[in-house]
Each structure stands twice: as C-alpha cells, then as structure tokens.
Amino acid sequence: MTTNDLGQPIGFPVPGWTARQRPPRAPLQGSFARIEMLDAATHAAQLYAANAADREGRIWTYLPYGPYAQESVYRDWVASMAKSEDPLFHAIVDRASGKAVGVASYLRIDAAAGVVEVGHINYSPALQRTAAATEAMYLLMKRVFDELGYRRYEWKCDALNAPSRAAAQRLGFTYEGLFRQAAIYKGRNRDTAWYAITDKDWPKIRTVYESWLAPENFDGGGRPKLRLSAMMQDALPA
C-alpha cells in the first residue's frame, strides 16, 4: 500500500504519465476481420442487409436506437454516426465475404486519463459466433493498449442483457459492479453492469487471444479447437 507523509493511503504512482492520443481513423486488419471507419456510402446497404436476417429485431433490444424499417432511414443514421468523434464508429468487415456485418465504437474517450469504452456493439447474425466477431474485439483493444498506451478499456451494458454480460467475460473483461437506475432508454430503466480490462491485465489477455487466433487452433472447417472462455479463466485477475 502507498501512503503519503501523513500515513494516509493514496493511489500508486504513475510516473511520467502524459495524455495519450485519441484513437485514429486508420483501419485495422486481421486474419478474419477488417475494421474500417463507418461510412454510409460504403457500409449502410451491406449492414442493413446483414441486420435484416434478424427478423425479430433482437439485436436492437438493448440499444437506444433501432430497429429500422427502411434502408433509407438506417442510411441516414449511419451517415450521422459516421460524422461523430465520440462515439467513434467503426464497421466490422468479414474478410471472407468482403461485406460489413457489424458495428462497434470507441466512446467516452478520456485521453488525459487513458480510459476508453467500447460500445454501440451491434453484430448481425452473419457475424455472431464467428472468429471474425472475436478478432474484431481483439483488434480494437489491441489498438487501445499496444498502439495508444491507454490504461483502461471499459465495457458497459444493460444488466439484463445476459448475452452481453457473458461476452464481456469471455473476451477478458472483469466485472466491477452494478450502477442502479443509471439510464433511461426506449422508455425503460437501465441498470448498468460495468466491466473493464486494465493495462496490467492486458499482457496475459493478449497472449490468450494470440493463442486462440493462431491458425493451428482452427480445424479444416474453420472451427476453433479451444474455447476462448476457458482459456481466459487463467488470465483474468483473481
């Protein structure tokens, strides 16, 4: 424990800390996924078509917007979000098909403290439960920690969103607590569950991702041999 001259406990030193750069608009390339800045002309039609496969609109339940009954309305939304600096929206492109099949963003970007959140995650059925889905999250967090040197990467979701909570833990985030009545959206209450990865957690988590994404972990049908959630158990903080 660190204490001051009065014997009071204080936070550990962060020597030489300086504000970090904001996330750039440069693309990210992986083996299964490519991350590009969201663009209406390039991505709106592809995303709308991919989202349409979710006929019940389940992917929109825990987002503050959508679903969209018309492509033109969705295109307008994409065009508006593409101009935003915070949230900073990205399209997730499946390299096998070359088509945009999902969206994610950096938001609440605090470059001075080295903290950023990942959110507005919307995976179409074509992206869900694929290697590209996992790799997209890895590429985004790798930029935050390895390229930009941030200290903390956050994930927040509606506490009732069981799939999102399970995904956070599978991806290496640690649960930090529940913020009751944190927001109102679509006319209903939201209790928010908080998760995070810190720069101290990241080296072990990165190693797990690198092992899981390695070509030898996939069989001839492109299916992973190892479960990421099981691999993460040893990497997560106690």
Rank of each mutant, 00 (worst) to 15 (best):
P87T: 06
A33Y: 06
V115F: 02
Q128F: 00
K83D: 09
A19M: 13
T3S: 12
P224G: 01
E176G: 10
T207A: 15
G221I: 03
Y185A: 08
R188K: 07
K200P: 00
Q46A: 14
W212D: 01
F12P: 13
G98L: 09
H90D: 02
L63V: 11
K142E: 01
Q8R: 15
N217A: 05
L213I: 09
K204W: 04
A104H: 01
L38H: 14
A166G: 07
K200I: 12
Q21F: 11
R20I: 07
F179N: 01
S229A: 11
D39Q: 13
M137H: 08
D54W: 03
Y48D: 09
E216I: 10
R55P: 01
R190K: 11
V14G: 03
L226G: 00
A193M: 12
N161G: 01
A91V: 10
L171P: 06
A91K: 08
S72Q: 13
M137Y: 03
L63D: 10
C157M: 05
R143A: 00
A126P: 04
Y153V: 00
K200H: 12
R34H: 10
R75K: 09
R170Y: 04
D39H: 15
Y138G: 00
R108C: 04
A132D: 00
E85V: 11
W77Y: 14
S31C: 04
D39G: 14
H90F: 15
P237R: 07
A168Y: 07
R165E: 01
Q21K: 15
L88P: 02
R55Y: 02
G177E: 07
R55F: 02
A82F: 10
E85R: 13
A100R: 08
D234C: 02
P24N: 14
A183Y: 13
Y150D: 00
G16A: 12
K225Q: 06
D5Q: 14
L127K: 06
P24I: 10
E216S: 12
T207R: 13
G222V: 06
Y195M: 06
P237M: 05
F32R: 15
M81R: 13
D86T: 11
G11Q: 13
A131Q: 01
R58C: 07
A91E: 05
A44I: 14
L178R: 09
L226R: 12
D158V: 04
V118H: 09
E176D: 10
R206G: 04
W202M: 08
K204A: 15
N217L: 09
D219V: 09
I205C: 10
W194P: 12
V73H: 11
R206A: 14
A96Q: 13
E56A: 10
G149Q: 01
H120M: 03
P67Y: 03
D5W: 13
W60F: 12
G66M: 12
R151E: 00
Y62L: 04
R34V: 11
G149H: 00
N189F: 04
G114M: 02
Q29A: 14
M81H: 07
W77A: 08
A193E: 08
E71D: 08
T18Q: 14
Y106T: 04
N122E: 02
C157Q: 02
I205G: 07
T198N: 09
D199K: 08
Q29E: 14
N4E: 11
A53D: 12
A183L: 14
T130W: 03
A69L: 13
A53G: 05
P237C: 03
Y74V: 08
D5P: 06
A193W: 11
